[in-house]
Each structure stands twice: as structure tokens, then as C-alpha cells.
């Protein structure tokens, strides 16, 4: 209950933050830009639009997740708002959880808005004939020519995977924010994200006989400890649904559980550190 009160307040605070709103506007603008790729063949335009749209949701979402995650707790400590909160009947774990949940809700709303804009642009693109009917003010053929693309559920799945990736990054940043300064945390969280995004590379390096043994251990440690952000890169089967692939939905569910498990571990570590933190 207390964590939820803090989460609600965190969300209210975040949606009024100018920097996050700027990222959201840039993201929406970027998605709209993809409508201008008319110089390509129609099929290519749709492929590029899907790839570009999902990429933009992720790109701007990364900024929102990391900027928000690194500052949620330190901002309260720096501005001394935390004194009046922790001196109230609020347990420290409730505070950390509340701040994280508020961030997660903010992230969800931002990704949902960016995703909705992307899906709208996608549907407008595949409904060229319907749009033409609108342009000629002949509304009759509009609904008959409107196509509800069967690719939409796949794209929503892709957006959900982007959200899971960002949520995991948010958990990393919030965990580090319990002991690192904002600047250090920015580099630390970014490094973890990069290392976790090339997990297949670190795994290969840890098994390569050409790698010195010490480095192999290091790569293995990075591969097993750092969350695998590459798990959520499912764009290819979504962008090219015509190419046969393994059971995508099962894979995505596994990735969701993996992300949630890692998020819980990171939050537990963050709470344990914060319990002894002097504010």
C-alpha cells in the first residue's frame, strides 16, 4: 500500500519532467518521419517502417529508462525530500519498491504512447487505398478498403519485448542508484546494457580456445552475471513474418519470465544496500 502511494507520486512527478516529455515528443516525431520513406518500393517501405518504428521505440525508450532510473532515488536524497518520507511510517524496502514501480508505470505509459503512434503509422501505411479514398473525400470505399493487418499482434509483441528490455534496464539503474552517484550510475548502467546486449559475443569469447584463460573467466562472468538484453531482440521474425521461425510466443514468454526474475533479484540487492544506506 505504502509502496503504491510512492509509486503513484513517482509517476506524477515523472510525467511532469520536461526531459522525459522531450524524449517522448522526439520519439513520436521519429515514428512519423518513417511515413516519408515513399521513394522505396511499397513492400520495402513496410519492412523499413516496422524495423525503424520498433527501433525508435527502443532507442528513445532507452533514454527515458536510463535517465529516469539513475535519478529516481538520488534526486530525493540530493533534494532532501527523502528526510520527510523516511521519517514517516515508510519502510525502506517500500520506498525503493515504490520508486521502481512508479518508474515502471511511467515507462509503460511512454512505451505505450510510442507504440500506439508506431502502430497507427503502420496501419496508415498499409491502408494506402483507404487513405486515398479519404483524400478524395469519397468516404464510401474507406471502410471497405480498410485492412486490419494480421501483423499487428506480432508488432504489439515486439513492443512488449522492448518494454521488458527497458524494464530490466530500469531495474539495473535503480539497483545501482542505491550506492552509486548519478554520473557513475549512468556509465555503469550503460556499460551493463552494452555488455548484456552482446551476451552471445561474451559467451562465444568465454568458450573460444584462442582467448587467454583469465579473459575467458572474465567473459564467462560477464555472460552469466549481466542480464542478457539480447533476449528481447525479436525484431527479425516480427519484421519478416513470412520467414518460418521457431515458436516465437513461447520464446517471448520465457524472455518475460527471465526479465522478471532478474528484475526481482536486482531489486532485492538494491533494497539490501538501501537498508544500510545513510541518507
Amino acid at each position: 500500500m505504502t509502496a503504491w502511494v510512492i509509486a503513484r507520486n513517482t509517476f506524477g512527478e515523472a510525467i511532469r519532467k520536461k526531459i522525459l516529455n522531450v524524449f517522448l515528443i522526439l520519439a513520436l516525431g521519429s515514428v512519423l518521419i518513417s511515413l516519408t520513406f515513399t521513394f522505396l518500393e511499397f513492400r520495402q517501405q513496410v519492412v523499413i517502417l516496422k524495423s525503424f518504428g520498433l527501433g525508435m521505440v527502443q532507442f528513445w525508450g532507452l533514454f527515458i529508462a536510463i535517465i529516469m532510473g539513475i535519478s529516481l532515488i538520488p534526486a530525493d536524497i540530493e533534494q532532501r525530500t527523502i528526510y520527510t518520507i523516511l521519517s514517516k511510517p515508510v519502510k525502506r524496502y517500500e520506498y525503493v519498491l515504490g520508486r521502481f514501480l512508479g518508474g515502471a508505470i511511467t515507462l509503460a505509459v511512454n512505451v505505450a504512447l510510442m507504440g500506439a503512434a508506431f502502430l497507427l503509422v503502420f496501419l496508415l501505411k498499409v491502408n494506402t487505398r483507404a487513405l486515398e479514398s479519404l483524400a478524395s473525400l469519397d468516404f464510401g470505399p474507406f471502410w471497405t478498403s480498410w485492412v486490419w493487418s494480421g501483423e499487428v499482434p506480432g508488432l504489439i509483441g515486439g513492443i512488449a519485448m522492448v518494454y521488458m528490455k527497458l524494464l530490466l534496464l530500469l531495474a539495473v539503474a535503480v539497483c545501482f542508484s542505491t550506492f552509486a552517484t548519478v554520473t557513475v550510475n549512468f556509465f555503469l548502467s550503460s556499460a551493463v546494457f552494452i555488455a548484456g546486449s552482446i551476451s552471445s559475443v561474451t559467451e562465444a569469447m568465454s568458450k573460444s580456445p584462442n582467448t587467454p584463460i583469465v579473459l575467458r573467466w572474465l567473459y564467462a562472468a560477464v555472460h552469466y552475471v549481466v542480464p542478457n538484453f539480447g533476449n528481447y531482440d525479436v525484431q527479425n521474425p516480427i519484421i519478416h513474418p513470412e520467414v518460418p521461425a521457431a515458436d516465437l510466443s513461447l520464446y517471448m514468454w520465457k524472455a518475460v519470465f527471465y526479465g522478471l526474475a532478474y528484475t526481482i533479484i536486482l531489486l532485492v540487492v538494491g533494497v539490501l544496500v538501501f537498508e544500510r544506506k545513510e541518507v
Partner: peptide, 21 residues
């Protein structure tokens, strides 16, 4: 202690609150 926090209060020097509220 959580119980004592229900019975006390604190006004810090130059207090800062959530400015968006």
C-alpha cells in the same frame, strides 16, 4: 522503528518537497 515513526514528525532545515505537487 515503524511504530515510533507513526508518533513523531520531522521538519528539516530548509525543507524540500515534491515541487510538482
Amino acid at each position: 522503528d515503524i511504530e515510533v515513526k507513526r508518533k513523531i514528525s520531522y521538519l528539516p532545515e530548509s525543507p524540500y518537497f515534491y515541487e510538482h505537487l
